[in-house]
């Protein structure tokens, strides 16, 4: 008997996000959107598009440039029974809103002894590659992952952009969804139904026996591209995508590294204090330690602000060729 696959068609990552927002708003009157230029303008990256025409200005609510106020309003609305979804135009601007994210949203459920919760979602595009320079290109996931009370999601495919967002909107906790600007125009198969992708489940994107590559965000597609090139040389890589950074589903990573004995951890963010250090710790603190054939390796962005000039910008974050070289080195040296 053939399993019936859910109906899929090809959507861009941005369209997938928009479809999740629309389906969530159709299904639940409590869901509404808040953000800068998300209405008639359609969002700085075109993500909300025509939603204001479908759901009206009250539920697709343009805000002044007041990130702290916007996130605070979402916290208050969530406390009062709504399901707000905030768009912060560039993830860099969350720095303006950190009090409401870190001191309020993340802690209220705990501080109040469980008497209240803050079911809100904050979507924000991160990452470099658009020539937008240091204040519009950061990868700040480690900031949020460090805060108990927040959940942190980084979708790397169109299907996950939809499914993880729907799961985030369902979640009774504040969820930070870090989308990637370079992925917005990438296409992929996306279910038509409002199919959830559970938070906290690492995806195995490719299986290979020589090295485990763990990557997040736009680095997932670069890792897959690198794995293809490595295969031509006879090196088989597994590529794992945590998708949810907090809570991290470490078991598939541990299992894969146990099998391959080699781990290459790839992130766009600067290395120091980055999330892949947490993944490295999860590996070496686990039973996979005894199976390691090589030191755990990280390939990260340089510890510099993202520069403007295209050649400098490329040099500041891992490229496919860098992943190929580092993986090859791990496999051939050890």
């Amino acid at each position: 008997m053939t399993a019936v696959l859910p109906q899929q068609r090809t959507l861009t990552y941005a369209e997938a996000v928009r479809e999740a927002l629309a389906q969530a708003m159709e299904a639940d009157e409590r869901v509404f959107l808040l953000g800068e230029d998300i209405g008639t303008y359609g969002g700085a990256f075109g993500v909300t598009g025509d939603l204001v025409h479908r759901f009206g200005e009250r539920r697709v609510r343009d805000t002044p440039i007041s990130e702290l106020g916007i996130v605070g309003a979402a916290v208050g609305a969530a406390l009062a029974g709504m399901r707000p979804v905030v768009e912060i135009q560039f993830s860099d601007f969350t720095a303006q809103a950190m009090d409401q994210i870190v001191n309020q949203a993340a802690k209220i459920h705990f501080m109040l002894g469980g008497a209240a919760s803050v079911p809100m979602v904050l979507r924000a595009p991160g990452g470099s590659g658009t020539g937008a320079a240091a204040q519009h290109s950061q990868s700040l996931e480690a900031w949020f992952a460090h805060v108990p009370g927040l959940k942190v999601v980084m979708p790397s495919t169109a299907a996950d952009a939809k499914g993880l967002l729907l799961a985030a909107i369902d979640d009774p906790n504040p969820v930070i969804v870090l989308e990637h600007k370079l992925l917005y125009k990438q296409s992929g198969p996306v279910p038509e139904e409002a199919t959830r992708v559970r938070l906290g489940e690492t995806a195995v994107r490719r299986s290979g026996g020589d090295v485990t590559i763990v990557a997040t965000g736009v680095m997932v597609s670069r890792a897959l591209e690198a794995a293809g090139q490595l295969a031509a040389e006879g090196i088989e890589a597994s590529v794992l995508d945590p998708r949810t950074l907090r809570p991290l589903d470490a078991a598939p990573i541990v299992d894969s590294v146990t099998a391959t004995g080699r781990a290459l951890l790839v992130q766009e963010a600067p290395q120091t204090g980055g999330f892949m250090a947490e993944v490295a710790a999860a590996i070496v603190e686990s039973s996979a330690f005894g199976h390691l054939r090589a030191p755990v390796a990280r390939l990260c962005g340089l510890d510099v602000p993202i520069p403007y000039a295209p050649q400098l910008e490329r040099a500041a974050v891992p490229q496919t060729g860098d992943i190929v070289r580092r993986a090859r080195e791990l496999v051939t040296t050890w």
């Binding site: 509404f32 009250r58 539920r59 702290l68 106020g69 996130v71 605070g72 309003a73 979402a74 916290v75 208050g76 609305a77 969530a78 406390l79 009062a80 029974g81 709504m82 707000p84 009090d99 409401q100 001191n103 309020q104």
Partner: peptide
């Protein structure tokens, strides 16, 4: 947090309004 409750109050008001 000083003034922390002020935007939260606006948000609760927004919930009522919606």
């Amino acid at each position: 947090i000083v003034a922390g409750g002020v935007p939260i109050a606006a948000g609760a008001g927004l919930a009522v309004s919606l």
